[in-house]
Amino acid sequence: MRELFTEHLIYWLILFLFMLGPYGMIFKKNLVKKLMSMNIMQVAVILFFLALGQKTGGTIPINLPGLIGAEHYINPLPHTLMLTAIVVSLATLGVSLGLLLTVQKRYGTLEEDELLRRMNQ
């Protein structure tokens, strides 16, 4: 049981979260919810990277006096990469909310079916 937890289950949960993104984007008809599923997907990627950097016996990657050696600290590289990824997700969110507002202003709806109907009029 413990093996399962440490080796697979966390990856599975993360990948489940990841696939929630495409699922929500296809099946949720509200554009705001599509946006949320996009964000959930990005968070899942971040979790995935952070999970890769885990290390038994490692502490947070900030230098402690007297504690020297790579085996004592968690790998800092995924953290760095994911800082960038978080920032990218915020940027995408800002742009897409702006787009949503414009769409709402013009077509008066954010439901996909209704939107398509009004666009074709």
Partner: peptide, 9 residues
């Protein structure tokens, strides 16, 4: 997961 920087962000 031991990532205070990422958590803060």
């Amino acid at each position: 997961m031991g990532a205070p920087d990422v958590a803060f962000t």
